[in-house]
Each structure stands twice: as structure tokens, then as C-alpha cells.
Amino acid sequence: MSRSSVTKRPTIVDVAAHAGVSTAAASKVLRGAYGVSPEMKAKVQASMKALGYRPLASARGMRGRTYTVAVVVADLHNEFSSLLVEGIRRECERQKYRLLVAPAGSGKDAQDRMVEDLIDRAMDGIVLISPLGTDAELEELAKKIPVVVLGRHGASPEFDSVAADDFAGANLVVDHLVSLGHRQITYVNHTTTGTNDARLPEEVRVRGYVDAMIRHGLGDAIDIIQSQWSQEGGEESGRLILSRKERPTAVFAGCDVAAFGVLTALWNAGIRVPDEISVAGFDNIFTTSLAPISMTTVDQSGLNMGSTAGRLLLERVGGRAEAVNSSVLPVLVPRETSAAPLLEVGKG
């Protein structure tokens, strides 16, 4: 395509000429400034529509708000992240804001680079899903731009936060499995490079598992597999369990994606679920409810969490300064992958 064949993007000067008004008048209509007559406003808006005029985001940023916010997410493979993003998107759409989804990749350096890029691009605010970093670092960021932290526990006077009660959710799963008669319950945990932040969901959930096991007098049976909350991590955990001489009667994976991996390993080995081994997850993503799977899990209202985060962020953008810490109460969703143990532990 030649340079001459490229259509020139219309400017505010073009709009003014088309409407037969001054550039200053057209600019006042664009800004929503005081003192513009209804007739003038209608004339300029008609020209904007006719020319296909759209103001540059950078120009909007110079005037103030860009009416664009971003959500930074590290794990797009996890369907639960999509639920959170969709909840944020719905709230932004309701309030006439644009949402930019920013994949941060893995690691804190990648996350920090993405955040700085978003600030440079004049976002009005940012939602961070389970961000890495200290409270001090997040608070310093919140001094630059309105921030809502989603999924990470802990309140701060500088930013808002939305999280499920992951501790209570893990308790619900262990209580359910114990009520069915299980005593050998293995937990699949998520670990990252270095030391996990105690406020991240994975750390809170594993503490909930340990607490429930001890509460039921099963402290000696605590069994934690350090893995990754991914399909691959779940499959590796499932194969590890199958390689043991004594197998658990139930497996609790800290997120549904890992639980699917465990199920895959068990199904590939011909293990009957739940007759030989029960399996439970956490998140209640859509695929857990499909009839051929029907997996026991914990619902933490991902759409509502995302919607709440979006609402809080736009309130921050609008000027609210007081911090809000919102907690979601999880609910157990028992399905077909959990049942009373029928075979003795260790057989197979």
C-alpha cells in the first residue's frame, strides 16, 4: 500500500471546518466545556460522526481522564482469571470506560514493566490480579495511580483490595471430604520461584488445608505436594500420587485447573473417580459444571469479585480516598468427583 493511499485520520481542525465553527468551539464541545449551546453541540457531534473522528488517547490524557483503565493478569490460561476480567469489563462497560487487558507474564520484573508501560500510556487506574511485591511497593504505586488489588489478601490505606476468604474455602473442602469418611487427603499447592508471599491465595489456602486437617485430628496425615497450579502441574502431581505405594483416598487441588490435571492423570491410568480416589478443586470455573466432569469445587464468585474490583477502581478514579477492603465468602459446590472411599488406602 502506498503512502498516498492511506486515509488520513481526521483531526479536530477537520471537524471544525466540516461543522463551520472555530477550532476552539469544536474543542469546547469535545471537552464538554461550559457555555456550549445545544445547537453548537449537535452540529459538532454530527461532524465528528460524519468524519469518523476519534480523539487520540494521548490528547484525552492531556485534558484529564482517558476513560480507560487496565487489568494486569499473569495467568491467562486459568479460566478463573477470565471470570475476574469479565466481571471488571462489565462494570467498566456499565460506566462507559474502556478496559485494557495487560498480560504480565511470569515474575515480578515483567509485572513491574507492564505497570510502568500502562502508567506511561495514561491509564486512569489499574487492577492488579494477585500481584507480586511488598505492601510498601504496592502503596508506592498507588500514590502514582488509583489501584485495586484483586485476589491478594491484606488491607492498606493506599489502595483497595478484593479477595475471597481462601482460608475458609480450603476448610470447606477438607470438612466435606472428612464428612465422607476420608482420612488420607493430599493437597496440591502452588509454589513460585523464591519465597511465596504469605498474602497470596496459594499461601492462604494451604494454611486453610493444614488448619482443617489438624482440627479433624488428622495432623499426622497432612500431605502437601508442591507443584504449579496448571494443567501440567496437576498431571505431574497425579502421576506422583499414582507412583506411591500408599495412595490417598482424596486429592484436593488448590485451583480447578490443577484439579483437571490430576483428573487427567488418574483417568489415563484407569483409576475410577471417585470410587478409588476423590478429587476436589477450587474456583468453580465453568468447565467444572459440565456433566461428563461434574467436579467438586469451591465457588468464590469470580464475576462478582471482578465487578466489585471494577466498581472500586472507578470510585477511586472519581476521587474516593478512603480505602475499601472487600471479602467474598466462598461456597462449597459438591459434585460427582467426591464420594465416600470404597477401597482401602494403599491398594493398587
Rank of each mutant, 00 (worst) to 15 (best):
S2D: 15
V6M: 12
V6W: 07
I12S: 09
V13W: 04
D14L: 09
A17C: 08
A19P: 11
G20P: 11
S22M: 08
T23C: 00
T23F: 03
A25Q: 06
A33V: 05
M40K: 04
M40S: 09
A42H: 07
K43N: 10
V44C: 04
Q45F: 02
A46R: 14
A46F: 08
M48I: 15
K49L: 10
A50N: 10
G52H: 06
G52Q: 09
R54Q: 11
S58A: 14
R60Q: 12
M62F: 12
T68Y: 04
A70M: 14
A70F: 12
V72P: 06
A74D: 14
D75W: 13
S81Y: 12
G87L: 02
R98M: 15
A102F: 11
A104P: 08
G105N: 06
G105Q: 05
G107P: 06
A110W: 01
V115E: 10
R121P: 00
A122D: 14
I129C: 10
S130V: 14
S130R: 14
P131K: 03
L132M: 13
L132K: 11
T134Y: 05
I145F: 13
V147R: 03
V148F: 09
G151W: 04
A155V: 05
S156D: 01
E158L: 13
S161D: 04
V162R: 00
A164T: 10
F167N: 02
V174Y: 05
H176S: 09
H176C: 07
N189T: 02
T191P: 02
T193I: 11
T195V: 13
R199W: 04
R199Q: 13
R199A: 12
R207Y: 08
V210D: 09
R215Y: 02
H216W: 05
G217K: 01
G219F: 12
A221T: 14
I222L: 02
Q226N: 12
Q228I: 01
G233C: 11
G234L: 08
E235F: 15
S243P: 02
K245F: 09
A250T: 04
G254A: 03
V257M: 14
A259F: 08
G261H: 03
T264P: 01
W267Y: 11
G270D: 10
V273F: 10
I277Q: 01
V279Q: 00
V279N: 00
G281F: 06
F282R: 02
F282E: 01
D283K: 07
A291W: 13
A291N: 13
P292M: 07
P292C: 04
S294P: 03
T297N: 03
V298L: 07
V298F: 09
S301V: 00
G302T: 10
M305T: 01
S307L: 03
A309Q: 09
G310Q: 03
R320V: 14
A321P: 00
E322H: 14
P330S: 01
V333F: 07
P334M: 07
R335F: 10
S338L: 06
A339F: 11
A340V: 09
G346Y: 08
